[in-house]
Every structure is written in C-alpha cells, then in structure tokens.
Amino acid sequence: MSEENLKFTETHEWARLDGKVVSVGLSAFAIEQLGDVVYLELPKPGDEVSKGASFGLVESVKAASDMYAPIDGVVSEVNYEVADNLDLLKTDPYGSAWLIKIESSDPSQLDTLMDTDKYEQFCATQVDQ
C-alpha cells in the first residue's frame, strides 16, 4: 500500500481514515531508526485510547519506545499477525503491518497531523539531531 492518504504524528505513527475507522501503524522512518524490531506490545480490542497517549510498546534490540495514539477512540481491531511476523514492519509498513484500528467519533482530530510531504521534511530535521 502506498503512502497516499496518510497522516503522520511527530512520534512517527501513521493514520489512515476509512469511514469512521482509523488504521494506525509505524512509519518506515521510525522502523529504520529502531533497527530490528523484536517485540510489539499491543492493546486489546475494546481498549480506549486517547490522542497523544501511549497505546503500546515497540521494542528493538537497541531501543524501546511507546507508541502514541493519533486520535481519541476505541480500539476495534488489533493486528496480532504482525506481532508474530515482525519483518512485515520492514516490508509493508503502510499495508499489512498496520497495528490497530481505532473507531473514533471525531475524525477531524487527524487534521492537525502532518501529511506525507510535511512528514518527510520533518524526518529530515530528525536525522540531523
């Protein structure tokens, strides 16, 4: 799947709106920075998440970081397959490596996020640091 129609957070999650449901994953940039991911801790369907709050944990050999929800809502689906096949994060970050789907009553919260171009510029500034 392509990077079109994606919105990005400054914490490197992506979000794609489809009706009322928002799919969430990790950006290719984040996955490259983390190195080999060894573990994902994901929420359960039915868990409430709120924008900017942690919904899970991604762990690589050299780092562990929280993943932050791009929007308020309730987790409707969790992709446990990716937790079992972590290489998907590298091979198909914006497609089959989605992590959770969130049902949200206020999709407009995504408007404040970055689009693909802006996110690319943002990543360029991150590399220098």
Binding site: V38, E59, S60, V61, K62, A63, A64, D66
Partner: peptide, 13 residues
C-alpha cells in the same frame, strides 16, 4: 537480551 527494558536505554521508563 531484552535490554531495551532496562534503565540504560529506557531511563525513567
């Protein structure tokens, strides 16, 4: 192994 949980990487978390 599982060092990413530890203080030298996770610090206050």
């Amino acid at each position: 192994t599982l060092q990413a949980r530890e203080q030298h990487i996770r610090r206050d978390k």
